[in-house]
Design a binder for these strands. Structure first.
Lengths: 341, 341
DNA sequence: TTGTAAGCGTTATCAC
DNA sequence: GTGATAACGCTTACAA
């Protein structure tokens, strides 16, 4: 029972209108009399018409597609970001073609070519393999999130402020020594500001501090093993002192917390812990973790706003592209839970 | 510097071939002489040609689009499933249009219409709002994952076997009483088999058991509050007995575990716990949780295989649709960690 | 308010 | 091996 597909031509014939009128029914219905609108509506119903947006796109050049390149969906940060971006469909009606980059530059290049072939109107990039200079060269609207973005528009968390608040809190908690634990990555990555802020705030307060950087690797076992060593060192080195630990994300914070609990049976007064991200693990931990919440919804919305701005401009007869890329920062918020006073 | 877009016509003119030959260069290069292939390759390079797949789709009817309707990306189970499905691009070259359904039937209907307008070749459904009968009525290849699927192809975890293994393990751990904690949902949902298996295995072993079902709600606070009550009741009611707790997912298992730890400072011998899913929280918990791992990669791959099977058939001149929908079950695997003996 | 006809950039059919 | 020509299903001047 394979019914042939119904087109404007069929509807036109059926209603004795022209294809143009049928087109107008969809794109500018007010230009038809109410009576004729109903006539066409009825015909659509009876013939079982099914829109074909691909034909529409070919004709008018507006694909309403947005491409997304995201490193993975394993980290809650990424999946939640994707979630919020996809949700913007309700507001803007853009459809999303999603690719997982897995940090592979050549692969991501290939994906971008595929996206261009589908005439995406804009691109959102969360991975950090392809330089912003190259992204710019594709000549389509781009917004990046939390990555190098010299030549394209971007949205980042205000990492500096976030890390400042975390460090401040630990100082106010009267910690004898502050310790920041983070991964190893280049200075141009936005989140490097967390390290800068930590050091600045410590310096400004004449606080004793230590910065520990480590290649933790990408799986739990690896992170756990390295964190265990770090914990043992700290625990011994600062025996008897109140330690304020600021970790670069909640997963790390949770692992550190678990190590403390496994040793002491609870979270002793001489350990204060702050994480980053406000991922689910922060509230689900044995002792709910104080953290700096990234406002993922705001970041996603801002990114889409910024992209829509550019895409809308491109649809004008004489588009005036941005002279300079726009960079936005979203303030994170401190969420106090039970690992700080 | 807006260069006009280059088309087959331009390349044809430039190389003195016809558009047909250019098309053949891409779709059947062997039908050209090597020399001419190189000639065209060179022209593409020099003109800066950019494929237009939308035009191709309109002409040949094969969009290579697959639609996905997924309830959310908040749960790791869903985001990881999406991750694996998207990764299949490398194997099959299908592009994915993703929509978040949020459990809203009307919204999901709208999304399906949009997907149909983009001429998707197939649809993967993880949400459970629209009946499989309706899904079938859209007359495109469909595969559902872990939901009602009477009239369409489906892939589910073998919930019965998984829950049997969990229950078995607790019995072998010499628990005095077995308790299964689960949400409230209808019997036609595939995971209801976990409840059936729990009861069957308990009965077959003459084990004392209790089934606790509760509407836990969708946010952490709500789940936590309800779980606290349940924990208090159990802890009092079965005082002095060894309790084997089997929870319907790892998030619940972790919350239960935390309640135990908060009361006892550690996981006492008289509490044994098994979760379900093997989500990250299971290994990240204070005491790594024994769980039944869903093989998300296998489920995703099987789903794509099943979808590709149908889509490939539809592309034949005289497609023979499946007489009966195919239903597959993927065996989960027991992962022993530290919450069982 | 409605219609005509020329695109949009490919592929498919049939010819040579 | 290669080429004309007609689709594919819609939009958009331009006319009326």
């Amino acid at each position: 029972m394979e019914r042939k597909k119904v087109t404007f031509a069929d509807i036109a014939k059926y209603t004795n209108f022209s294809k143009t009128t049928i087109s107008r029914y969809f794109n500018n219905p007010d230009s038809l009399t109410l009576e004729n609108q109903e006539k066409i509506a009825k015909a659509l119903e009876e013939l079982g018409y099914q829109k074909n947006k691909l034909a529409k796109v070919l004709a008018n050049g507006k694909s309403e597609f947005v491409g997304i390149i995201i490193p993975n969906l394993y980290f809650h940060y990424y999946s939640e970001m994707l979630n919020k971006i996809l949700a913007s469909y309700e507001e803007y009606n853009y459809k999303f073609l999603v690719f997982i980059g897995n940090h592979k530059k050549e692969v991501e290049r290939k994906y971008i070519q595929e996206l261009l072939a589908y005439k995406i109107e804009g691109l959102i990039v969360l991975s950090n393999t392809i330089s912003s200079e190259e992204l710019k060269s594709y000549n389509i609207p781009v917004v990046t999130i939390e990555r190098e973005a010299k030549y394209v528009c971007s949205v980042d968390t205000d990492n500096y402020t976030g890390a400042s608040e975390a460090t401040d809190l630990l100082i106010k908690n009267n910690c004898d020594v502050l310790i920041h634990i983070n991964n190893i990555f280049p200075e141009y990555v936005p989140s490097y500001d967390r390290i800068r802020a930590f050091i600045d705030v410590c310096d400004n307060n004449n606080a004793k501090y230590e910065l520990i950087r480590e290649n933790f690797g990408y799986n739990y076992e690896s992170v756990f093993a390295k964190m265990q060593n770090i914990f043992n060192e700290i625990d011994e080195k600062y025996l008897g002192q109140k330690k304020g630990i600021f970790l670069s994300n909640d997963t790390y914070a949770n692992i550190f917390l678990n190590l403390v609990i496994q040793k002491y049976g609870n979270l002793p007064e001489h350990y204060r812990i702050v994480g980053f991200d406000n991922s689910p693990i922060a509230s689900e931990a044995v002792v709910p973790i104080t953290t700096i919440a990234q406002q993922i919804d705001k970041i996603a919305n801002t990114a889409m706003d910024l992209l829509v701005l550019q895409m809308t401009e491109m649809k004008k007869r004489k588009p005036i592209p941005l002279k300079e890329p726009i960079h936005k920062q979203i303030a994170p918020v401190l969420i106090k839970r039970n690992t700080t006073d």
